[in-house]
Nucleic acid binder design. Structure first.
Lengths: 228, 228, 228, 228
DNA sequence: TATGAATGAGCCTTCATTCAT
DNA sequence: AATGAATGAAGGCTCATTCAT
């Protein structure tokens, strides 16, 4: 079966197959993520994912090695969404690093709000993730938070941001964004996402912005901290 | 039934029994926590807890209603440790609210370091915790973070801390402390606990301390941010 | 998903699946019943049923919701056997209601003899049966005993049966048939099934048949009560 | 230890001990029976019996070999109640065998109504009863039903009862009495105990009483079958 | 005698994984 | 490529029974 072309050419069969594999993976990943958000990660059994995707259990195993691999893929998928959404948000924002920082944080929080349960999965036992998965996630987080670090450095260079530990601040912003998912049941009645983002932004910026430049960013914090 | 003492005394049998119940509960709670730290919470089966504690499965059910209840008790136990350790740490610290805030944060981080996995348990699916458990945890967290809120308010009143949303800042400090557990595998090679505490403290204080009072707290941040 | 035939035809896949489901259910039901007859209902664990049927435990749960449901299904199955065997026995019998009554009673006893332990299951704690199951059994028993009631009424109308409480007599005949199973260990050494049926038939008819018509049914009672 | 008297005298210690054993057994038996009637035989665990009796689990094992033995003892106890209640009921009844038969049947039904669940236990798996227990029960049932057989024979001799298989009729009357317990959930809404007894008595007597003597017993059947 | 803490075999059930079709 | 029936290990839990006190 299949074609027997020269190796220098791209095998069109292989290409078509790759496309189908891609589509199926997408379908399964989306189903798993949807299920997870809708029913909580407790309800994610292979059968449930299959049902949600409208395929058979067996098929999942043709695309993912097993449950752990599937779950890891879902996490990676979410982190990929981060990696693509943040830059998009930055383009829409003003050129100023601090404004962009705020936009990036908001984008983080919004993606997390959409993938609350999947985001929390990142904190799963490293055992079930495996060394490989752990490394992959670490890399992705670093890569995804790269824009933050870049912006922080730009701000510091521009003199609008005080001289902080760029790595740690980036990490903290991530954690605070995740905080929305982690402590969601803590806040769900008292705080909306928008309010959460605004207040956290105010707090973060207060620690970052050079005191003598702070009045430049008042608009960013309205209406939460107009007195800033 | 046992002895027949004067009614004015507390039944010594009941008292002795209460002590034994307390000891057994401790033993089981510790075993569960130990197992969790060592093998990860995935490995926590009732049989495993029993083995770790050196007792039989059945016995656990005399002290805890079931697995969920046991796990909830482990969480509550950790939160209780918080609630008792933080005040102790505060007494040892200087009277100044900002110094105390830093001491409290360090104490938080240290307890979490000792109960890394149990601390993370707080973020379990609320479903498996049950409404009751969820409420209990929420209450305990609020109660445990109360010292932070008090200190923040004192600082604000004293004019050493800027006017922030006390609730959110307290929550953030908690989250940052938890961050040590949550992202431990992220930092384990690059950062020690002490370093983590110092750097985070510096960042937090930078956002809290009134700029014109900042030089009063330089010592707190050395050697991490001597330039502060 | 399978073939794409004309919509007017029944989906052959679904049909085939239904057949297989039916076969498996049969197999499991029979295994459970067999096990019950051989080892007593105490020995009926899911594992034992699986072993007896030559399948795995898990499979049972694809066909029955749980142990209670399986047991209920066994009971219902036996009652269904009743419901189908009795009419068959009646067709083979003479047209006369009293003759048919005797034939029905014999048929009852024979089915019960074949499902001795399962028949007794009907008397299980109603709790473990559940409200639903209880109602189902009640309905089936009423439905199954309907032929008896009909025959009794016909006999009364024809003047060959005295005017009795049709419901209670039908219930008694059922109970007496069950008696063969219930008190089997009482009789097993002294009485055979055939003998049991004959003697009980004689007793029942003596209480039912109009005295002046009794000689018409002498043949029914031979050789047990030739003097009747 | 204890006393060292001559063997010809009854050891008073032993006697006292026997009394205590008897009392304890009573206490436990009653507790078990009470529990069974109140909660159904499903709820009869050793712990529950101990609680109901106000003693510890361990103590039960000093008086009964185990659960099966305890349950057997409860059954035997109930059958003993039969054996003592029936004669008492007969003494209160008229001298006529048929009247006494009716009185005996009523007494049976009443005792069974009081020990519904225990009565049904008789039909427990022979396996869990053991050969010994089975024999004991068989003997007790035969002994207990002896009055019935005697009365039937007297009736036959007196010419008021037709010539029936005395053993089987006695057995049937027992079964019909048990029927009240066995099918209780069938009748509980439609029939009271008294009604059940009356109707069954009417049916039984119709099959037993010599047709030409039937009018002598009309009063027995009122108001159920006044036309008899 | 009496207690009740402790045991552990055994039960029901779930679910990731495999494999014949 | 796709299905889904079948597997069986593993988990949570119960409860009859024992034994040190």
């Amino acid at each position: 079966m299949g074609s027997t072309r020269r190796a220098t050419e791209v095998d069109p069969d292989a290409a078509a197959r790759a496309v189908r594999v891609e589509q199926r993976s997408r379908q399964l990943l989306d189903a798993a993520a949807r299920l997870m958000e809708r029913e909580g990660s407790q309800a994610v059994s292979m059968q449930a994912v299959a049902d949600e995707a409208g395929v058979s259990v067996g098929l999942i195993y043709r695309y993912f090695g097993g449950k752990d691999e599937l779950l890891l893929a879902v996490i990676v998928d979410v982190l990929d969404t981060f990696a693509s959404r943040i830059p998009a948000a930055l383009e829409a924002a003003e050129a100023d690093p601090v404004h962009r920082l705020a936009a990036a944080f908001r984008a983080y929080c919004e993606v997390i709000d959409e993938h609350r349960h999947a985001a929390v999965l990142t904190y799963r036992e490293s055992k079930s993730l495996g060394v490989e998965g752990r490394e992959k996630i670490k890399d992705l987080e670093i890569k995804t938070s790269e824009p933050l670090r870049t912006l922080l450095r730009q701000g510091i260079d521009a003199g609008t941001v005080v001289d902080v530990d760029v790595d740690l601040v980036a990490y903290n912003m991530l954690l605070l964004a995740h905080g929305w998912a982690l402590k969601h049941w803590h806040f769900e009645r008292s705080l909306g996402l928008d309010q959460y983002v605004r207040e956290q932004t105010a707090l973060i910026l207060r620690g970052l912005v050079e005191p003598r430049r702070s009045r430049d960013y008042r608009s960013l914090l309205d209406p939460v901290a107009p007195e800033f």
